[in-house]
Each structure stands twice: as structure tokens, then as C-alpha cells.
Amino acid sequence: MTLPPPVRVGRQQQAPHTDQFDDGPFAFRPATKDGAKARVSIQGVSGSGKTWTGLSVAHGLAEGARFAVIDTERGAASLYVGHRGIQFDSLQMHRYDPRDLVKALAAAAQAGYPVVVVDSLSHFWKGTDGTLDQVEKAKGKYGNNSFAGWKDGTPMQNDMVEALLAYPGHVVVTMRSQTEWVLQENDRGKKEPTMVGLRAEQRRGIEYEFGVAAEMDINNRLRFLKSRCPALHQKVLEQPDGDRDIARPLLDWLRDGAKPVDTATWIDAATAIDATADGLVALYREVEAASALATPLMHPETGQPTNLGDLIRERGAALRAQPDA
């Protein structure tokens, strides 16, 4: 199969957003959980057990299949391979550009892993080449204005989060925590630092992007900060079994009254030799309604990371540009 020459070759050279794709109707549809996947974040201090718990959750979500681990912790996750039957494939990363995480997710999607674990997501915020580094590098373009450097850093961060949330399988991330302090007035009327809890080492509030967010303390005690799954709401687990205590209730809830959705069907439709420009607009609307435009994948022609929405746009623009369109 030969597709029209690709228009999009990089983030800075996207196909122009045409009216057909941009100006769709605001159409309400019946709400469903069809195709919904688990999105789990686990944060904690060093030694709290977040890596093992994340792996055991992933094992349960994968239901015996091998899953993928994107490892920033110098192989820490691999020390658990084989324990309680857990088997997975690992990708070791040593630099933490958010765009590289998008590429890794695209590679995992291409390989068909049902679950991907990121251990840990904190490195893509404050590690080498992480978002904070990208902002520092970018500020030189804006007269060393760090605030202006976020013009470059924010889109990278947002694209990374979108790729995580749109991965066509379940996602489990771990994050390091740090103690958070605020200045509060004491009974003598003086301001003093007061510990108010733990905060994930990532962009503030990122844990709430996930359907399930939990924190673990040094005693391996897990507390759910947020859960859209009623069975997990506000629960506290002592030394949790990630498979039994978290993955199984999540899968039961996600599957209740829902139909599976295979993103490969959309990819096949986007790259079909008999696809039409109008048909691709309709496909775009369908994918958009499923909140799956940011689904990471490898471009079928260039082999470079892209996403489903951009692939459909590109193909549609190429077909529109053909003389006999």
C-alpha cells in the first residue's frame, strides 16, 4: 500500500488545520465508557513501595500478558521481574525530554503492549532535559526571561500528558514525593513554616489528570487521593496487593456496561488505500468524540512518532490536494 506523500514531518511542520477538521459541530452524544482504560498515578517518598505496587497493578491490568516499563530509575523495576510471576519488557531512559516520553509511548503502542508503566514520571519534570531544563534552555531566546521560557516548555509538557492519557492501553505512572511547607501564623502571631503534606515532583496538580491517584508513605500504606472508580474512593490500604486490591476493582468498573474499542481499526481506516477526504473528516469526528486524537503511534510512512489526530489530518490534507480530489 502506498499512501500520499506525508505533509507532517515534525512538530513544527504540521499540516495546516483545515476548516473541515477545525470547524466541526458541537454535537452531544450518549455517554458511554466504551474503550475506557485505567489511568493510575502512585506517588510516594523513596522506599514507600511505589515501584513494586505500580508493577503489581500493571500485572493485574495486563491479565497475564507482558507489559512495558519505561524506566528512569536505573533499572530498579527490573529487580522485581519474575517476582510473583510478573514479566515485562523494559526501556531504559537516561535523558528525560518530555518529547522522548511521547516517542517511547508511540513505540509501546506500535508493539501492542496492553499496559505501560512509567517509573518515574518525576524525571520528565526535573531530570536531565526534563521540562524544567527545557524552560531553562529556552529562556535565552527571550532575553533570559524564565517566565517566557514556558512558551516552549508548556507545549512539551502538555503534549506529554496528552500522549499518556491517550495511550491505547492502560497506563500506570509513579512519581516521587517531596514534603510541602507553607507559612502559617502560629498562636503568637508569627509566621512559621508548617508541613501540610506531600506533593508529587511533577507539575502541580498533575496527579488529578489521572482517573485514580494514590500516595504511599514509608510504611507502605496507600491512600487514594482521588478515584473515579467508586470501589476505590477514599480507601486506605495497608501493604496493598496491586493486582487484587486495585487492578481487579478497576477492570470490573471499566468493563461494566462498556464495549471494547480497538484503536487499530481507526488507524487502518486512516491509512486505507480507498480512504476519501470526506471519510477522513468523519473518522476524525469519531476519534475526537472518543477523546483519542492524541493516541501516540508511529507514522506508517516515516516511522516517526505522531498521533492519530495528526495522521488523519495529514492524510486528509494530502487527498484534498490531489488534482482529482
Rank of each mutant, 00 (worst) to 15 (best):
L91M: 09
L251R: 12
T295N: 08
V287S: 07
K190S: 11
E215Q: 12
Q14S: 11
Q14M: 12
F210E: 02
W125T: 00
Q157G: 01
P249E: 07
M160H: 07
E162P: 00
E136N: 08
G149R: 00
R176T: 01
V118S: 05
H233I: 02
T295W: 01
A104W: 03
P296R: 02
V281Q: 12
E180M: 05
E162G: 10
V161L: 08
L121M: 14
Y142K: 05
A275Y: 04
M93V: 13
T32C: 07
S120E: 00
E180Q: 13
P230D: 10
H17N: 12
A76H: 11
V281A: 15
A214C: 12
T72S: 15
T263G: 05
V135I: 12
C229Q: 11
Y284V: 00
A166K: 01
G149C: 04
D217C: 04
M175T: 11
L165M: 15
R176H: 13
A282S: 15
E209R: 07
T128E: 14
R99H: 05
V161Q: 03
W125Q: 01
A166Y: 00
Q12I: 09
I70H: 01
A106M: 01
E180A: 12
Q12D: 14
D23H: 13
V182F: 02
Y113R: 00
T276N: 08
Q178K: 15
D241Y: 02
D310S: 07
A62I: 06
G127K: 08
E192C: 06
L164I: 10
E301C: 07
G75E: 07
L319H: 06
K126M: 09
D19A: 15
K126A: 08
A166N: 04
Q92N: 10
V40Q: 08
P249Y: 12
Q12A: 15
W266M: 02
L165G: 09
P5A: 15
V135P: 00
H170I: 09
V182L: 10
D89F: 12
C229Y: 07
H233F: 12
F28E: 13
R313W: 04
H233P: 01
D252V: 09
A109G: 11
P155Q: 03
E238R: 10
A111T: 02
